[in-house]
Computed example of a mutant assay.
Amino acid sequence: MTENSTAPLGLLGAQPSPRTGVERVVTAPLPTVYGQFRAVGYLDHDRGDEQVALVYGEIGTEDVLVRLHSECLTGDAFGSRHCECGDQLEAALRAVAAEGSGVVVYLRGHEGRGIGLLAKLRAMALQAEGLDTVEANLALGLPVDARDYGVAAGILRDLGVRSVRLMSNNPRKREALVRHGVRVAEQVPLLIPPCESNITYLRTKRERMDHHLPHLDAVGQLTR
Rank of each mutant, 00 (worst) to 15 (best):
H215W: 09
A53T: 12
S197P: 08
H82S: 02
S80E: 02
E207F: 03
E84W: 15
L9T: 01
P194M: 07
L202D: 13
Q221D: 08
R174F: 02
P31M: 15
A146W: 14
E62C: 12
M124I: 10
P171L: 01
F78R: 01
L202I: 14
A97D: 07
E99K: 15
A153W: 15
M1H: 02
L142N: 11
R183V: 15
D49I: 11
H211T: 01
V96F: 10
A28C: 13
A92I: 06
L9Y: 03
D76H: 15
S5C: 11
V64S: 05
Q187T: 07
M124V: 12
A136D: 02
G35K: 09
V104E: 07
Y106L: 07
Q51S: 03
D49S: 08
V40W: 08
A218Y: 11
E129W: 11
L68P: 00
P189F: 04
G35I: 12
V103S: 00
M1V: 12
S163D: 04
V151M: 08
Q15L: 10
D145Y: 15
G35T: 12
L216P: 12
Q187A: 06
S80R: 05
H180V: 09
G220L: 11
A7Y: 01
H45R: 09
E84A: 09
R172K: 14
T133I: 14
I199A: 06
P171S: 03
A92W: 00
D63N: 10
E129S: 14
V178T: 06
K205L: 09
L93T: 06
L140M: 11
R206H: 10
A119M: 06
Q127M: 11
A95V: 14
L117P: 07
D63V: 09
R165Y: 14
L54W: 14
V104G: 02
G109I: 05
N137Y: 12
V55L: 12
A139Y: 02
T20N: 05
I192Y: 01
R19A: 09
G116T: 02
P31S: 13
R162G: 02
P214M: 14
E71G: 01
A98H: 09
H82P: 04
S197F: 12
G141Q: 13
P194V: 08
R108A: 05
A119D: 01
L190V: 04
F78T: 09
G112K: 00
S80C: 03
H110G: 08
L222V: 14
L12T: 04
N198K: 09
L11I: 06
V151Q: 09
L107A: 05
Y42L: 05
E135Y: 00
G60L: 04
G114S: 03
G102E: 00
L213A: 02
A39V: 07
K205R: 10
E3F: 09
L138V: 10
R122L: 07
V96S: 01
S168H: 15
R172V: 10
G150A: 12
I115T: 10
